[in-house]
């Protein structure tokens, strides 16, 4: 068993032993999905619904859970403990954040399936939707590292997350409510805008193009933005992230 898998397994055990967190993690996406089904939403609303749901999941399940986990593990001196082992730093961080990513993947699958059922539509370009999920999850983790670097206590996490959550969800709503031809170049720079565009292309297909090639072409600038933002966040985190609780 690799060190990453061993740590991820331990983190998942710890999560499953916290009943409140586990029940919320499982029930909330189902509750949202049921709400979606009974709310009799208009058919053309599917991609907007998918955008909102994914951005909420990235903000709350990836960004919030990952930031809280990192800050809590540092406060509990567990990050220091793991660094006393011979496990590589990448394994420690990946293993620690695996539960957030597992939850995100499971919740997103449930919510998107229920959205498809509720609206009687299916994603036209599932590959682009998959890219949105992967890059959105990676961006959420990178933002979590940066936020954790500047957050000393678990109590301060919710306030510290406000700028990143606002950029994610606000940027996504902005991009979703703007006509495709009228999008400013900097809306995707919020991160949320780029994710929203990818989800919209994944669900509805590219504007004026039916094929995968057209969809990938339309997705490319948003992919580039997300990769650049993730790399920038990772670079900042690499310089500023603290392992010690004590200064």
């Amino acid at each position: 068993m690799t060190t990453t898998v061993a740590l991820a397994r331990a983190e998942l055990i710890m999560l499953t032993r916290n009943r409140t967190a586990l029940v919320n993690a499982v029930l909330i996406p189902f509750a949202l999905g049921v709400l979606w089904i009974v709310s009799d939403s208009p058919t053309g609303f599917a991609s907007f619904g998918a955008v909102l749901q994914l951005l909420v999941l990235i903000a709350f399940t990836v960004l919030s859970v990952a930031t809280t986990t990192l800050v809590a593990r540092r406060q509990q001196h567990l990050l220091e403990r793991w660094r006393l082992s011979t496990a590589p730093i990448g394994s420690i961080l990946t293993g620690t954040l695996t539960p957030a990513l597992v939850l995100f993947t499971g919740q997103a699958t449930v919510l998107l399936a229920m959205t498809a059922y509720a609206t009687g539509s299916a994603p036209k370009q599932p590959l682009v939707l998959g890219i949105a999920l992967v890059l959105g999850g990676a961006f959420g983790c990178a933002l979590a590292f940066v936020t954790a670097a500047f957050t000393r206590t678990v109590e301060a996490v919710s306030v510290a997350l406000l700028p990143a959550s606002t950029a994610l969800i606000g940027g996504g709503i902005w991009a979703s409510t703007t006509a495709p031809g009228e999008l400013s170049w900097w809306i995707p720079a919020t991160g949320g805008g780029a994710i929203a565009q990818l989800v919209r292309i994944g669900w509805d297909g590219a504007h004026g193009s039916a094929g995968l090639g057209g969809a990938l072409g339309a997705a490319l600038p948003n992919v580039a933005w997300l990769l650049a933002l993730t790399a920038m966040a990772a670079a900042i985190a690499a310089r500023t992230f603290r392992w010690h609780a004590r200064g």
Partner: peptide, 23 residues
């Protein structure tokens, strides 16, 4: 370490088995 650095939700056996895998 001076401060306790142990995962509260694991048992001592689980923790030491994990530690052996991480070293």
């Amino acid at each position: 370490l001076q401060e306790s650095a142990l995962p509260q939700e694991l048992t001592p056996l689980e923790f030491l088995q994990l530690w052996n895998r991480l070293t």
